[in-house]
Write a protein that binds this DNA or RNA. Structure first.
Lengths: 178, 178
DNA sequence: CACGAAGTTGAGGATAGCCTCAGGTTCTCT
DNA sequence: AGAGAACCTGAGGCTATCCTCAACTTCGTG
């Protein structure tokens, strides 16, 4: 059981981390987070030990909520192909709207286990939706969706949100069954 | 006119820069380049003044040669669509084969003027080849090709050369006229 | 060959983040 | 209230890279 003040600091740290990560991405200086939480860096390290742990503490929920929302929206469509489109576009817009999520997706291979888990689930759902439509050749796999998210992340980071939208649109056009 | 020893050092610096950039990308420590040239950092700064200038001194030729080779190969095809395919795939393989080029492409918006010029020429040629085929909707623009190169660069940097190949393949499939 | 111009050197100041730990503070329980 | 466990602090050591500049070396010419 945490002491009352410690619990309060921990909550503040999480809140600050979420704020800062969403503003400047997952690479933000941890000192900035500590500062915004009104706490010293030492405390941050006492509580979390590493940036990864801090990310794991605040990002998975954020991502899971987003992914779930997108999943529901996509599945609300009756046409299987429209589901795919909505899902892909939804993920893209999620990345554009939130640098923290975009970063998390792009680095899912390393790092925080919980973040990786949410990513994996998101890819699984994408694969499931794709399975429901007859895709052309070359067929698009689960891993390809992962690659697409990484690519989007890079484009968004360099200010190319629109470029990412175009790429996804063309890609979807290519995947669309005849 | 440069003094003989100065000229020699300059040549060595260029050679070393090319080596190091191709091995580790355009962000490599300049100290490493100086060291490999058998010269002090001070000399590097005396000669080039900045990383950008050094890049401009060695990368444009490298890129231009590559792009020209790809352009020729693409135009050797008789079918207009095959030209597009060869050009896109050629650029991609160039990026995969050379981190320095990949970096240069990804950062063409800022930085070195000569590098930007070569990039612009490469995009122009892509647009020209695309114009020759009836592309579907959404039509792929010059800027979209730029975005694709940036995306590829990111994928390659995270070890996803194959992922980039897949993305390009699906994208080409989507662009292919009926 | 000697002298001035041209060129080189590399230690070190500056920046930016990471992470630690000895010492001080605050909570909580009795 | 007193004691001690729990917690917090933040200066400072560490890494990595950039860039500078006063002192030194070398070249090339008269």
């Amino acid at each position: 059981m945490l002491r009352a003040d410690a619990q309060r600091n921990l909550d503040r740290l999480k809140a600050a981390a979420l704020e800062v990560f969403r503003e400047r991405g997952l690479g933000s200086p941890l000192e900035e987070i500590a500062k915004r939480a009104g706490v010293s860096v030492g405390t941050l390290y006492n509580r979390f030990g590493s940036r990864e742990a801090l990310i794991d503490a605040v990002i998975p929920d954020l991502m899971a909520a987003n992914v779930e929302r997108i999943r529901l929206d996509a599945n609300a469509a009756t046409d299987p192909w429209e589901r795919v489109e909505r899902y892909f576009n939804g993920l893209l817009e999620m990345q554009i709207a939130d640098p923290a999520v975009s970063d998390a997706v792009a680095r899912a291979y390393e790092g925080s286990p919980d973040v990786s888990a949410v990513c994996a689930a998101a890819l699984d759902e994408g694969a499931r939706l794709l399975d429901a439509v007859r895709t052309g050749d070359p067929s698009f796999t689960r891993d390809d969706l992962g690659a697409l998210l990484v690519a989007n992340s890079a484009l968004i980071a360099t200010g190319g949100a629109d470029a990412a939208r175009r790429i996804v649109a063309v890609l979807l056009a290519g995947l669309r069954p005849a």
